[in-house]
């Protein structure tokens, strides 16, 4: 499902979480697997909308800047996604919210993502801190 949109999805991923630029290939695969896993449990129509939105971002950027999203510099990518996030049309706003939420899930849902920010919750609770 994600293979056809992988380059755009990764470009959006790095815009949402700049640290994702440091991920190696196995880490990207892990992130994408989380996104894919979250999507397959949702209705097919929603899965199609997700792919459509990622493709739309790539080409709407071309309309706006004369270059597709993947060819933009990081600042322009961020500005462009922010404009979509603030769009007057609800369906676009919630689409961007959903897309960034899935990418945040992919990045911070990995154990390495939690560790990187210092998340230390442990079933042993206080005992694990002593």
């Amino acid at each position: 499902m994600l293979a056809s949109i992988r380059p755009v999805l990764r470009a959006i991923g790095v815009t949402v979480v700049p640290e994702a630029a440091q991920l190696d290939e196995p880490q990207w695969v892990a992130l994408e697997e989380i996104v894919r896993g979250a999507l397959v449990s949702r209705p097919r129509a929603l899965q199609r909308q997700f792919v459509l939105l990622v493709r739309a971002i790539q080409w709407l950027a071309a309309l706006r800047y004369g270059r597709p999203f993947t060819a933009l510099d990081p600042q322009r990518r961020e500005r462009f996604l922010s404009q979509l996030q603030n769009a007057p049309v609800l369906i676009l706003r919630r689409g961007i919210w959903g897309l960034r939420t899935l990418l945040l899930m992919g990045y911070y849902g990995r154990e390495a993502g939690g560790r990187a920010i210092g998340y230390r919750a442990d079933p042993r609770g206080w005992k694990a801190r002593s």
């Binding site: 815009t15 949402v16 979480v17 700049p18 961020e78 996604l81 922010s82 996030q85 960034r100 939420t101 945040l104 899930m105 990045y107 911070y108």
Partner: peptide, 10 residues
């Protein structure tokens, strides 16, 4: 937590 925060990016 990441989901609850507004926006994205740096």
């Amino acid at each position: 937590t990441a989901k609850a925060l507004a926006g994205f990016g740096p």
